[in-house]
Protein backbone atom coordinates (compact mmCIF):
# COMPACT_ATOMS: atom_id res chain seq x y z
CA UNK A 1 0.00 0.00 0.00
CA UNK A 2 2.81 2.38 0.81
CA UNK A 3 4.20 1.75 -2.63
CA UNK A 4 0.91 2.63 -4.27
CA UNK A 5 0.55 5.76 -2.15
CA UNK A 6 4.04 6.78 -3.16
CA UNK A 7 3.19 6.32 -6.81
CA UNK A 8 0.02 8.35 -6.35
CA UNK A 9 1.97 11.24 -4.88
CA UNK A 10 4.40 10.98 -7.74
CA UNK A 11 1.65 11.13 -10.34
CA UNK A 12 0.12 14.16 -8.69
CA UNK A 13 3.47 15.88 -8.96
CA UNK A 14 3.82 14.81 -12.59
CA UNK A 15 0.33 16.13 -13.27
CA UNK A 16 1.28 19.50 -11.82
CA UNK A 17 4.43 19.70 -13.94
CA UNK A 18 2.50 18.68 -17.05
CA UNK A 19 -0.25 21.21 -16.42
CA UNK A 20 2.37 23.89 -16.05
CA UNK A 21 4.09 22.88 -19.26
CA UNK A 22 0.70 22.86 -20.97
CA UNK A 23 0.25 26.46 -20.01
CA UNK A 24 3.60 27.75 -21.15
CA UNK A 25 4.16 25.62 -24.24
CA UNK A 26 1.54 27.13 -26.57
CA UNK A 27 2.59 30.58 -25.46
CA UNK A 28 6.07 29.97 -26.87
CA UNK A 29 4.76 30.49 -30.39
CA UNK A 30 6.10 33.71 -31.79
CA UNK A 31 4.06 36.74 -32.75
CA UNK A 32 0.85 38.11 -31.32
CA UNK A 33 -1.58 35.20 -31.63
CA UNK A 34 -4.39 37.08 -29.93
CA UNK A 35 -4.57 39.74 -32.62
CA UNK A 36 -4.10 37.18 -35.36
CA UNK A 37 -6.91 34.98 -34.11
CA UNK A 38 -9.25 37.91 -34.08
CA UNK A 39 -8.01 39.36 -37.37
CA UNK A 40 -8.39 36.01 -39.12
CA UNK A 41 -12.10 35.94 -38.59
CA UNK A 42 -12.96 39.40 -39.67
CA UNK A 43 -11.44 41.78 -42.14
CA UNK A 44 -13.40 44.78 -40.93
CA UNK A 45 -12.16 44.95 -37.37
CA UNK A 46 -11.14 48.17 -35.77
CA UNK A 47 -9.23 48.68 -32.56
CA UNK A 48 -12.37 48.84 -30.41
CA UNK A 49 -13.82 45.55 -31.68
CA UNK A 50 -10.44 43.91 -31.38
CA UNK A 51 -10.11 44.88 -27.74
CA UNK A 52 -13.71 43.95 -26.97
CA UNK A 53 -13.24 40.53 -28.52
CA UNK A 54 -9.94 39.97 -26.75
CA UNK A 55 -11.69 40.72 -23.48
CA UNK A 56 -14.53 38.33 -24.34
CA UNK A 57 -12.00 35.66 -25.30
CA UNK A 58 -10.16 36.11 -22.04
CA UNK A 59 -6.95 37.12 -23.83
CA UNK A 60 -5.12 39.69 -21.78
CA UNK A 61 -1.79 41.43 -21.87
CA UNK A 62 -1.16 40.68 -18.20
CA UNK A 63 2.23 39.22 -17.24
CA UNK A 64 2.46 35.48 -17.92
CA UNK A 65 2.75 34.64 -14.25
CA UNK A 66 -0.51 36.42 -13.38
CA UNK A 67 -2.23 34.59 -16.25
CA UNK A 68 -0.75 31.35 -14.96
CA UNK A 69 -2.19 31.87 -11.48
CA UNK A 70 -5.59 32.67 -12.99
CA UNK A 71 -5.32 29.55 -15.14
CA UNK A 72 -4.57 27.33 -12.17
CA UNK A 73 -7.45 28.85 -10.24
CA UNK A 74 -9.86 28.30 -13.13
CA UNK A 75 -8.78 24.68 -13.52
CA UNK A 76 -9.52 24.07 -9.85
CA UNK A 77 -13.00 25.50 -10.39
CA UNK A 78 -13.52 23.44 -13.54
CA UNK A 79 -13.78 26.63 -15.59
CA UNK A 80 -12.11 26.12 -18.95
CA UNK A 81 -13.47 29.17 -20.73
CA UNK A 82 -14.87 29.43 -24.24
CA UNK A 83 -13.37 28.00 -27.38
CA UNK A 84 -11.86 30.61 -29.68
CA UNK A 85 -12.23 28.62 -32.86
CA UNK A 86 -15.83 27.77 -32.04
CA UNK A 87 -16.85 30.92 -30.21
CA UNK A 88 -18.90 31.28 -28.00
CA UNK A 89 -19.20 27.56 -27.30
CA UNK A 90 -17.84 26.60 -23.87
CA UNK A 91 -14.80 24.34 -24.14
CA UNK A 92 -16.50 21.73 -21.97
CA UNK A 93 -19.27 21.34 -24.56
CA UNK A 94 -16.76 20.46 -27.28
CA UNK A 95 -14.85 18.06 -25.07
CA UNK A 96 -17.89 16.24 -23.76
CA UNK A 97 -19.08 15.74 -27.35
CA UNK A 98 -15.94 13.91 -28.43
CA UNK A 99 -14.66 12.38 -25.22
CA UNK A 100 -16.75 9.21 -25.18
CA UNK A 101 -16.06 8.39 -28.81
CA UNK A 102 -12.33 8.77 -28.38
CA UNK A 103 -12.38 6.51 -25.35
CA UNK A 104 -14.49 3.94 -27.14
CA UNK A 105 -12.33 3.81 -30.24
CA UNK A 106 -9.09 4.02 -28.26
CA UNK A 107 -9.85 1.42 -25.63
CA UNK A 108 -11.40 -0.98 -28.10
CA UNK A 109 -8.47 -0.92 -30.46
CA UNK A 110 -5.75 -0.87 -27.79
CA UNK A 111 -7.31 -3.69 -25.79
CA UNK A 112 -7.93 -5.84 -28.85
CA UNK A 113 -4.34 -5.29 -29.95
CA UNK A 114 -3.01 -6.03 -26.47
CA UNK A 115 -5.01 -9.18 -25.85
CA UNK A 116 -4.73 -10.56 -29.36
CA UNK A 117 -1.07 -9.60 -29.69
CA UNK A 118 -0.08 -11.08 -26.35
CA UNK A 119 -1.99 -14.27 -27.05
CA UNK A 120 -0.42 -14.66 -30.48
CA UNK A 121 2.99 -13.91 -29.03
CA UNK A 122 2.61 -16.48 -26.28
CA UNK A 123 1.42 -19.01 -28.81
CA UNK A 124 4.37 -18.34 -31.10
CA UNK A 125 6.85 -18.61 -28.23
CA UNK A 126 5.31 -21.76 -26.88
CA UNK A 127 5.48 -23.44 -30.26
CA UNK A 128 8.76 -21.84 -31.10
CA UNK A 129 10.02 -22.75 -34.54
CA UNK A 130 6.62 -23.95 -35.70
CA UNK A 131 4.84 -22.78 -38.80
CA UNK A 132 2.86 -20.20 -36.88
CA UNK A 133 6.01 -18.87 -35.27
CA UNK A 134 7.71 -18.67 -38.64
CA UNK A 135 4.80 -17.04 -40.44
CA UNK A 136 3.09 -14.74 -37.97
CA UNK A 137 6.00 -12.46 -37.06
CA UNK A 138 6.99 -11.52 -40.62
CA UNK A 139 3.37 -10.98 -41.69
CA UNK A 140 2.60 -8.84 -38.66
CA UNK A 141 5.88 -7.00 -39.02
CA UNK A 142 5.09 -6.19 -42.62
CA UNK A 143 1.63 -4.87 -41.77
CA UNK A 144 3.07 -2.86 -38.91
CA UNK A 145 5.68 -1.36 -41.17
CA UNK A 146 3.24 0.83 -43.05
CA UNK A 147 2.84 4.39 -41.88
CA UNK A 148 -0.52 4.31 -40.19
CA UNK A 149 -2.19 6.97 -42.33
CA UNK A 150 -1.02 5.24 -45.50
CA UNK A 151 -2.69 1.96 -44.66
CA UNK A 152 -5.74 3.71 -43.27
CA UNK A 153 -6.16 5.81 -46.41
CA UNK A 154 -5.73 2.77 -48.65
CA UNK A 155 -8.27 0.79 -46.63
CA UNK A 156 -10.61 3.78 -46.52
CA UNK A 157 -10.32 4.14 -50.26
CA UNK A 158 -10.88 0.42 -50.91
CA UNK A 159 -13.41 -0.70 -48.31
CA UNK A 160 -15.30 2.48 -47.56
CA UNK A 161 -15.18 4.35 -50.86
CA UNK A 162 -14.85 1.77 -53.65
CA UNK A 163 -16.54 -1.31 -52.15
CA UNK A 164 -18.75 0.64 -49.72
CA UNK A 165 -18.63 -2.17 -47.15
CA UNK A 166 -18.21 0.22 -44.27
CA UNK A 167 -19.49 3.74 -43.67
CA UNK A 168 -17.22 6.57 -44.79
CA UNK A 169 -17.37 8.29 -41.43
CA UNK A 170 -19.20 9.14 -38.20
CA UNK A 171 -19.77 7.03 -35.13
CA UNK A 172 -23.41 6.10 -35.83
CA UNK A 173 -26.06 6.50 -38.53
CA UNK A 174 -28.57 8.89 -37.02
CA UNK A 175 -27.94 12.55 -36.28
CA UNK A 176 -29.00 12.35 -32.66
CA UNK A 177 -27.14 9.71 -30.63
CA UNK A 178 -28.55 6.21 -31.20
CA UNK A 179 -30.82 4.61 -28.60
CA UNK A 180 -29.26 2.22 -26.13
CA UNK A 181 -30.74 -0.87 -27.71
CA UNK A 182 -29.22 -3.88 -29.39
CA UNK A 183 -29.64 -2.23 -32.77
CA UNK A 184 -28.22 1.04 -31.57
CA UNK A 185 -25.16 -0.74 -30.18
CA UNK A 186 -24.83 -2.75 -33.38
CA UNK A 187 -24.86 0.46 -35.35
CA UNK A 188 -22.14 1.98 -33.20
CA UNK A 189 -20.05 -1.19 -33.46
CA UNK A 190 -20.47 -1.26 -37.21
CA UNK A 191 -19.09 2.25 -37.48
CA UNK A 192 -16.24 1.23 -35.20
CA UNK A 193 -15.02 -1.65 -37.35
CA UNK A 194 -13.03 0.15 -40.03
CA UNK A 195 -11.16 2.63 -37.79
CA UNK A 196 -10.49 0.10 -35.03
CA UNK A 197 -9.45 -2.62 -37.49
CA UNK A 198 -6.80 -0.41 -39.09
CA UNK A 199 -5.33 0.47 -35.71
CA UNK A 200 -5.24 -3.17 -34.64
CA UNK A 201 -3.73 -4.21 -37.95
CA UNK A 202 -0.84 -1.80 -37.69
CA UNK A 203 -0.20 -2.16 -33.97
CA UNK A 204 -0.56 -5.92 -33.58
CA UNK A 205 3.05 -6.65 -34.57
CA UNK A 206 4.87 -5.04 -31.62
CA UNK A 207 2.51 -6.58 -29.05
CA UNK A 208 2.98 -10.03 -30.54
CA UNK A 209 6.74 -9.83 -30.93
CA UNK A 210 7.33 -8.27 -27.53
CA UNK A 211 5.31 -11.02 -25.95
CA UNK A 212 7.00 -13.75 -27.96
CA UNK A 213 10.49 -12.54 -27.16
CA UNK A 214 9.80 -11.88 -23.51
CA UNK A 215 8.19 -15.27 -23.25
CA UNK A 216 11.18 -17.01 -24.80
CA UNK A 217 13.41 -15.22 -22.33
CA UNK A 218 11.25 -16.25 -19.40
CA UNK A 219 10.83 -19.82 -20.56
CA UNK A 220 14.55 -20.34 -20.45
CA UNK A 221 14.99 -19.06 -16.94
CA UNK A 222 16.10 -21.23 -14.11
CA UNK A 223 13.15 -20.89 -11.83
CA UNK A 224 10.81 -22.11 -14.54
CA UNK A 225 12.96 -25.14 -14.99
CA UNK A 226 12.81 -25.53 -11.27
CA UNK A 227 9.04 -25.29 -11.35
CA UNK A 228 8.94 -27.91 -14.03
CA UNK A 229 11.36 -30.05 -12.13
CA UNK A 230 9.08 -29.81 -9.12
CA UNK A 231 6.55 -31.53 -11.33
CA UNK A 232 4.18 -28.66 -11.99
CA UNK A 233 2.03 -29.21 -15.07
CA UNK A 234 3.40 -27.46 -18.15
CA UNK A 235 0.16 -25.59 -18.78
CA UNK A 236 0.11 -24.37 -15.22
CA UNK A 237 3.71 -23.28 -15.50
CA UNK A 238 2.91 -21.47 -18.70
CA UNK A 239 -0.02 -19.52 -17.36
CA UNK A 240 0.91 -19.07 -13.75
CA UNK A 241 4.52 -18.12 -14.23
CA UNK A 242 5.71 -17.68 -17.77
CA UNK A 243 2.84 -15.64 -19.23
CA UNK A 244 2.54 -13.56 -16.10
CA UNK A 245 6.20 -12.63 -16.13
CA UNK A 246 6.49 -12.25 -19.86
CA UNK A 247 3.46 -9.96 -19.87
CA UNK A 248 5.31 -7.31 -17.88
CA UNK A 249 6.85 -5.41 -20.81
CA UNK A 250 3.52 -5.44 -22.59
CA UNK A 251 1.74 -4.16 -19.50
CA UNK A 252 4.25 -1.33 -19.30
CA UNK A 253 3.57 -0.56 -22.93
CA UNK A 254 -0.17 -0.76 -22.31
CA UNK A 255 0.04 2.23 -19.99
CA UNK A 256 1.68 4.30 -22.70
CA UNK A 257 -0.70 3.01 -25.35
CA UNK A 258 -3.82 3.85 -23.38
CA UNK A 259 -2.37 7.21 -22.49
CA UNK A 260 -1.64 7.92 -26.13
CA UNK A 261 -5.21 7.13 -27.13
CA UNK A 262 -6.27 10.73 -27.69
CA UNK A 263 -3.33 12.18 -29.51
CA UNK A 264 -2.34 8.91 -31.16
CA UNK A 265 -5.69 8.43 -32.81
CA UNK A 266 -5.53 11.73 -34.52
CA UNK A 267 -4.84 10.28 -37.96
CA UNK A 268 -7.55 7.62 -37.59
CA UNK A 269 -10.08 10.21 -36.69
CA UNK A 270 -9.09 12.32 -39.68
CA UNK A 271 -9.15 9.51 -42.22
CA UNK A 272 -12.41 7.97 -40.99
CA UNK A 273 -14.04 11.25 -39.93
CA UNK A 274 -14.58 9.77 -36.47
CA UNK A 275 -15.93 12.30 -33.94
CA UNK A 276 -13.22 12.03 -31.28
CA UNK A 277 -10.98 14.47 -29.51
CA UNK A 278 -7.84 13.83 -31.58
CA UNK A 279 -8.96 15.94 -34.46
CA UNK A 280 -10.28 18.65 -32.13
CA UNK A 281 -6.82 18.74 -30.64
CA UNK A 282 -5.16 19.15 -34.02
CA UNK A 283 -7.53 21.97 -34.87
CA UNK A 284 -7.09 23.62 -31.49
CA UNK A 285 -3.32 23.54 -31.86
CA UNK A 286 -3.29 24.79 -35.43
CA UNK A 287 -5.74 27.59 -34.70
CA UNK A 288 -4.03 28.53 -31.40
CA UNK A 289 -7.27 27.97 -29.53
CA UNK A 290 -5.68 28.27 -26.06
CA UNK A 291 -8.69 27.44 -23.90
CA UNK A 292 -9.59 24.34 -25.91
CA UNK A 293 -5.96 23.27 -26.16
CA UNK A 294 -5.41 23.61 -22.42
CA UNK A 295 -8.53 21.70 -21.54
CA UNK A 296 -7.66 18.93 -24.00
CA UNK A 297 -4.11 18.77 -22.68
CA UNK A 298 -5.48 18.48 -19.19
CA UNK A 299 -7.85 15.66 -20.11
CA UNK A 300 -5.12 13.82 -21.99
CA UNK A 301 -2.58 14.30 -19.24
CA UNK A 302 -4.95 13.08 -16.59
CA UNK A 303 -5.93 10.06 -18.65
CA UNK A 304 -2.27 9.16 -19.14
CA UNK A 305 -1.63 9.49 -15.44
CA UNK A 306 -4.64 7.44 -14.48
CA UNK A 307 -3.71 4.78 -17.02
CA UNK A 308 -0.15 4.65 -15.74
CA UNK A 309 -1.30 4.49 -12.16
CA UNK A 310 -3.59 1.59 -12.95
CA UNK A 311 -0.79 -0.12 -14.84
CA UNK A 312 1.60 0.41 -11.94
CA UNK A 313 -0.88 -1.22 -9.63
CA UNK A 314 -1.36 -4.15 -11.98
CA UNK A 315 2.40 -4.39 -12.28
CA UNK A 316 2.69 -4.86 -8.55
CA UNK A 317 0.13 -7.62 -8.65
CA UNK A 318 1.96 -9.35 -11.48
CA UNK A 319 5.48 -8.97 -10.23
CA UNK A 320 5.91 -8.77 -6.46
CA UNK A 321 9.66 -8.42 -6.95
CA UNK A 322 9.20 -4.83 -8.08
CA UNK A 323 7.33 -4.04 -4.92
CA UNK A 324 9.91 -5.48 -2.61
CA UNK A 325 12.69 -4.01 -4.70
CA UNK A 326 11.22 -0.53 -4.41
CA UNK A 327 10.74 -0.79 -0.72
CA UNK A 328 14.16 -2.15 -0.01
Amino acid sequence: MLYIAKRLAFYLLAAFVAITVNFFLPRLTPGDPASTIVATYSTTLNEASLNALKAAYGLTDEPLFTQYVTYLGNILHGDFGRSLSNFPAPVTAIISAGFGWSILLGLTSVLISFVLGSALGALAAWRRGGLFDKLAPPVLLFLGSFPYFFLALLLFYLFCFKLQWFPMGNAYSSVNPPPFTLNGIGDVLFHLIAPAFTIVLVSLGPWTLNMRNAMIGVLSEDYLTLAEAKGLKPRRVLFAHAVRTALLPNVTALGAAIGGVFSGQLLTEIVFTYPGLGYSLMRAVSSVDYPLMQALFLIITLSVLVANFVVDTVYVLLDPRVRTGQEA
Binding site: F10, A15, V21, L25, T29, P30, S263, L281, F297
Partner: peptide
Protein backbone atom coordinates in the same frame (compact mmCIF):
# COMPACT_ATOMS: atom_id res chain seq x y z
CA UNK B 1 16.49 7.86 -9.99
CA UNK B 2 13.37 9.59 -8.66
CA UNK B 3 14.15 12.85 -10.46
CA UNK B 4 15.05 11.15 -13.73
CA UNK B 5 11.96 8.99 -13.54
CA UNK B 6 9.89 12.08 -12.90
CA UNK B 7 11.40 13.81 -15.93
CA UNK B 8 10.87 10.71 -18.04
CA UNK B 9 7.28 10.41 -16.95
CA UNK B 10 6.60 14.06 -17.57
CA UNK B 11 7.89 13.62 -21.11
CA UNK B 12 5.72 10.54 -21.41
CA UNK B 13 2.58 12.26 -20.22
CA UNK B 14 2.96 15.41 -22.26
CA UNK B 15 1.00 14.54 -25.35
CA UNK B 16 3.76 14.35 -27.93
CA UNK B 17 1.74 15.34 -30.96
CA UNK B 18 0.75 18.81 -29.72
CA UNK B 19 4.28 19.23 -28.48
CA UNK B 20 5.56 18.31 -31.92
CA UNK B 21 3.08 20.63 -33.61
CA UNK B 22 3.96 23.54 -31.38
CA UNK B 23 7.68 22.91 -31.74
CA UNK B 24 7.33 22.48 -35.50
CA UNK B 25 5.43 25.77 -35.68
CA UNK B 26 8.03 27.45 -33.51
Amino acid sequence: DDVLTLVTNVFLVIPSLPLIVVLAAF
